[in-house]
C-alpha cells in the first residue's frame, strides 16, 4: 500500500519532469524542424530541404551580424574574465576603503532589471559622445558580466588554501610567478566556469544590446529582433540550429570529463 503510493508519486514526478522538458524544448524543436522546411514561411511544414543552410552564406546581413556577435562575445568574455578574475582575487584577499561600495556595485547588474543598465549605459555613452557600435557593445557586455565572473571565481577561492600561495613565495617565486604557477591553475575551474557564463550571457543578451548597439554593429539577436515582427526567414532557423549544435559540441568537448563519467556510470549499471 505504502509502496504503491510511493510509486505513484515517483511516476507523477517523472511525468511532470517530462512535461517541463517538453515545454523547454518545444520551441527549439520547432525552430530546428522548420530549418528543414521547403516552405518559405514558417507556418506549415511542407517538405524536407537543406536549402536554407546554403542560403545562410548568401545572406550578407545575417553573416555580418553573426560575425559581430562572435566578435563582441569573444572580446567581452576575454576582458571580463581577466578583469573579473584578478578583481575577485583582490577583493577576496585585501581590505580597503570603499570595498563595501565595490561589493554593492557588483550586485547591481545581478539584481536590477537589465533595461535600467541598458539605458544608463546609453546615457553615459551619449555624454561621452561615443558613437554606438562594436566598442560600446563590448563595454556594455563586460559591464553586465563582470559580477558573474567575480562570483564564480570567488566561490572557487573560498576553497583555496592561502598557504599554497605562501608556499610558492617561500620557495622563491615572486608575486607574478606565484600567480601564474600556482594561483591561476588552482582556480582555473572557476575561471573557466565564469568565462563560459560570460560568453553565454553575451550571446543571449537582447535588452542591453538593444540600447548600446549602433547601425553598423547589428548583432544576431538584434537582427532577429528586427526580423521577428515581419517573419523570420528560414535561413535564420538554419543558422540558429547550427549555433545550437556548435555550442553543444563545444560544451561536450570541454566538459568531456563529465560526460565520460556519466557514461561509465551507465555502463557500470548495466553490468
Amino acid at each position: 500500500m505504502k509502496q504503491a503510493k510511493e510509486k505513484i508519486i515517483k511516476a507523477l514526478g517523472k511525468i511532470h519532469a517530462g512535461l517541463i522538458l517538453l515545454f523547454l524544448y518545444l520551441p527549439i524543436m520547432v525552430v530546428v524542424v522548420f530549418s528543414f522546411n521547403t516552405s518559405k514561411r514558417n507556418i506549415v511544414f511542407q517538405g524536407f530541404t537543406l536549402e536554407w543552410y546554403g542560403k545562410i552564406f548568401e545572406n550578407q546581413r545575417l553573416l555580418e551580424s553573426f560575425k559581430n556577435t562572435i566578435i563582441v562575445a569573444l572580446t567581452s568574455t576575454v576582458i571580463t574574465t581577466v578583469i573579473g578574475t584578478i578583481g575577485a582575487i583582490g577583493l577576496y584577499k585585501y581590505k580597503f576603503k570603499g570595498k563595501g561600495v565595490v561589493d554593492a556595485l557588483m550586485y547591481i547588474p545581478v539584481v536590477i532589471p537589465e533595461i535600467i543598465l541598458g539605458i544608463a549605459l546609453l546615457s553615459i555613452f551619449a555624454i561621452m559622445k561615443m558613437p554606438l557600435g562594436i566598442l560600446t557593445l563590448i563595454i556594455a557586455h563586460v559591464t553586465f558580466s563582470i559580477p558573474f565572473v567575480v562570483f564564480t571565481v570567488r566561490a572557487r577561492l573560498n576553497g583555496f588554501d592561502p598557504s599554497i600561495e605562501e608556499a610558492a613565495m617561500d620557495l622563491g617565486a615572486g608575486r607574478i610567478r606565484t600567480f601564474f604557477e600556482v594561483t591561476l591553475p588552482c582556480i582555473m575551474p572557476g575561471v573557466l566556469a565564469g568565462a563560459m557564463l560570460a560568453l553565454t550571457l553575451s550571446m543571449d543578451d537582447v535588452i542591453i544590446s538593444f540600447f548600446t548597439t549602433g547601425p553598423t554593429s547589428t548583432t544576431l539577436p538584434m537582427q532577429i529582433y528586427s526580423m521577428v515582427r515581419s517573419g523570420v526567414s528560414p535561413d535564420v532557423n538554419a543558422l540558429s540550429t547550427l549555433i545550437l549544435v556548435g555550442t553543444i559540441a563545444v560544451v561536450v568537448i570541454t566538459q568531456g570529463g563529465l560526460f565520460s563519467l556519466i557514461k561509465t556510470k551507465i555502463t557500470k549499471k548495466k553490468i
Binding site: I83, I86, G87, G90, L91, K93, A120, I124, T143, I146
Partner: peptide, 21 residues
Amino acid sequence: VTVSPVSIWLLILIAIPLVYV
C-alpha cells in the same frame, strides 16, 4: 593592481551612469 581595474570599471560604468540617470 588587482582591485583597481574592477573597481574603476564598476564606478565608471555602473555608479556614474546610474547617478546620471
